[in-house]
Write a protein that binds this DNA or RNA. Structure first.
Lengths: 186, 186
DNA sequence: ACGGGACCATACCCAAGGGTATTGACATTT
DNA sequence: AAATGTCAATACCCTTGGGTATGGTCCCGT
């Protein structure tokens, strides 16, 4: 790590990295400090306290990291393209500025112990599920059921990949094929 | 909670309940004590320290709670029955003696911050994935890809259900139908 | 060159949670 | 009934991690 002045975003990126690597309990001020080669003095200049810091992480995740999925899908035309956009999101790690790792599984873990994260994740889940449902309904499919299946696979494969169990791309294309096949039998 | 003598298993069940409800950080001695209407004195009689307690939780989970899946599947004959057995496991909560809640999502969360849990979960994942793969291969399917898809859906829907987002049974039967359909086109 | 603000290091304090020691109530054994 | 063993309450200690106070360095504008 360079010796330059630290910024709010640098601190947050370190937090996301710790979060993805070792879970919510690992995002503590001392750890982050030594990870950045700094001390608490710097942290408390950029943030009032740790709850403000965590709120900033949550907000950053909601707005910048986790909210692109729907937009990406809306930009596509065919169902296949839309599914590709959705599944690409499950494979792609977070941008380097935000830790460079897959953080959604860790966020789901975090949601267990933090009410605010839990609420944000709940909102995100219902939003995505509803969006998926209406999308699939629009293609003449059983949106209620398929949205849950697709989103479930999205979450689970995301988790498997983040833990290094698989690369998950093959499984997602298989699911895509199955769904596309279902549209033709209509 | 009754006023009776507490047992090791009672303490462990309380731990699983806390774990499922509020994540790994919530399994602490003081909290469990007041949850059981007791004090630390009791805890430290049954367990040497908290790491022994957590090891006991992990071991109990591995042997009693999480290892039934493969056995249940092996007891079935047709592919459909086997898939049913697998998916039933994703829906069923833990037995009352072990907290009575779905704990695998919380275990996956715990694995982020605890090396031992991480290793146990990794072993379990690879075991299940390999088993699923060979199973599907035996039915003339693409085991490598489908095992990941099925297990991913298993994990994700398990998580969604534990967070109260869906009941997941519909999605799983849909996936089952898709897989069964794939066997017929062979 | 100097005054002020951005940025960070150092040295503390405090609450929380793990751990220990001691004692007490109750049952069982001899 | 005396002794032993099981189980739990109480009162402590210690470490960890959040938080504060204070002072230092660098830079930038005037």
């Amino acid at each position: 790590m360079a010796k330059e002045k630290l910024s709010k975003d640098t601190w947050l990126a370190a937090g996301f990295q710790s979060l993805a690597d070792s879970g919510p309990t690992s995002v503590q001020i001392n750890l982050l400090s030594q990870k950045l080669g700094a001390t608490k003095g710097s942290f408390y200049w950029h943030f009032k306290d740790i709850s403000e810091y965590k709120s900033a992480m949550l907000e950053l995740w909601r707005t910048k990291v986790a909210s692109d999925v729907i937009d990406n899908i809306n930009a596509q035309q065919t169902l296949e393209q839309q599914l590709d956009a959705l599944f690409a999101d499950a494979t792609r790690p977070a941008p380097e500025e935000y830790g460079g790792k897959k953080i959604e599984p860790a966020m789901r873990a975090w949601a267990l112990s933090d009410q605010d994260v839990g609420k944000a994740l709940a909102d995100l889940d219902t939003l995505r599920l509803l969006f998926l449902k209406s999308l699939l309904d629009g293609w003449g499919l059983d949106g209620k059921v398929l949205s849950e299946l697709i989103y479930g696979a999205y979450i689970g494969l995301d988790d498997l990949q983040s833990k290094g169990r698989t690369n998950s791309s093959g499984a997602l294309t298989a699911l895509k094929q199955m769904i596309l096949a279902a549209t033709e039998t209509k």
